[in-house]
């Protein structure tokens, strides 16, 4: 167990508004070993971002962790004080967000924001911090970094801004990096470049990575393990190889066949029909039931539990004896 960096057990997150309470994350468990890369995959709204924000305890005023534990290096994050959390955020666990357009402060130069991030956790003089900031920009592949330091976010392209966000996240050498859809807001060629950069990072840095995406293709070459989420729950959790070679859950299969492939000439991409059930109105049986081609009678009435098949966990009646 000494190798485990992060362990999330039975995490439940609820959001309360005046007239309703929704459970956005419902009994999610997973773990990340040191240096490992976990891919978290699922359609928009399935609770990926909420799960990652829960790990940093940044759910805002309406979100509450109502159950479970989050152990980081063996210590329960949920029991820590706010000021201890500030020590963990950015330094131990860093985060890259999807929205590079809006994720940087528009009235501050890139340099100021980077230096600000570096000096949150490390006392150093301005010169040293500036040098480190320039080094970080170089490391994430930003050309003429000295000049970029004095520019504002709106002067940079989307891809460059995302690189700056990555540089900020890496600047304190975190042991866990959470990348929440780092490429979603970018156009295709830039996406490929950022994925390339993430792959480099995986090779060169010792940080464990959680990469969140709605596109299985993004994590295909990067992830060691993959967790597939649906409607706030884990539906399949397995080795990346076995997910791609032998996907168990009907939803995972659906996701896989909707990845564009260069080796097959398909005109129309397969897409899973229907849409995610609303959190206000969760089906009483399997949450995927309405969209599932393999649905059986039992699926409509009884929710399946997560069960183990070989090295995988899967939430589906097909695999329950």
């Amino acid at each position: 167990m000494a190798n485990t960096l992060l362990e999330v057990n039975n995490l439940q997150v609820q959001f309360s508004t005046i007239d309703s309470t929704v459970t956005a994350v419902d009994g999610v468990s997973f773990s990340v070993n040191k240096g490992e890369t976990l891919g978290v995959v699922g359609e928009s709204g399935c609770g990926k971002s909420v799960t990652s924000m829960a790990i940093l305890r940044l759910l805002g005023k309406t979100g509450k962790i109502t159950q479970g534990e989050i152990l980081f290096e063996g210590q329960d994050i949920l029991k820590k004080s706010e000021s201890d959390m500030c020590q963990i955020r950015g330094k131990e666990i860093a985060m890259i967000f999807q929205d590079s357009m809006t994720g940087l402060n528009p009235v501050m130069t890139i340099g100021k924001q980077l230096i600000g991030t570096i000096t949150v956790h490390e006392k150093m003089n301005k010169k040293t911090a500036e040098k480190k900031a320039i080094d970080m920009l170089k490391k994430v592949g930003i050309p003429s970094p000295e000049q970029r330091m004095n520019e504002y976010p709106h002067q940079l392209s989307g891809g460059m801004r995302q690189r700056v966000m990555i540089a900020m996240a890496l600047s304190c050498n975190p042991s866990l990096l959470i990348a929440d859809e780092p490429t979603t807001a970018l156009d295709v060629t830039i996406q490929a470049q950022i994925i390339e950069l993430m792959k480099d990072l995986k090779k060169t840095s010792e940080a464990a990575i959680i990469i969140i995406t709605h596109d299985l293709g993004v994590v295909a070459e990067m992830a060691d393990r993959i967790m597939v989420m649906y409607s706030g729950q884990v539906v399949e959790y397995a080795d990346a190889r076995s997910i791609f070679i032998n996907p168990l859950h009907p939803y995972t299969r659906g996701l896989l066949s909707s990845i564009p492939r260069l080796d097959k000439d398909v005109d129309v991409l397969y897409a899973i029909k229907g849409s995610v059930p609303s959190l206000q109105n969760v089906p009483k049986g399997c949450r995927f039931c309405e969209r599932c081609q393999d649905a059986m009678e039992i699926c409509k009435n009884k929710p399946p539990v997560l069960c183990t098949v070989g090295d995988c966990s899967v939430r589906c009646w097909k695999y329950t004896k």
Partner: peptide, 13 residues
């Protein structure tokens, strides 16, 4: 705004 979330995630008080 998102950049406030970014700032919080860097561990700034």
């Amino acid at each position: 705004e998102d950049y406030i979330r970014t700032a919080r995630a860097t561990g700034l008080r």
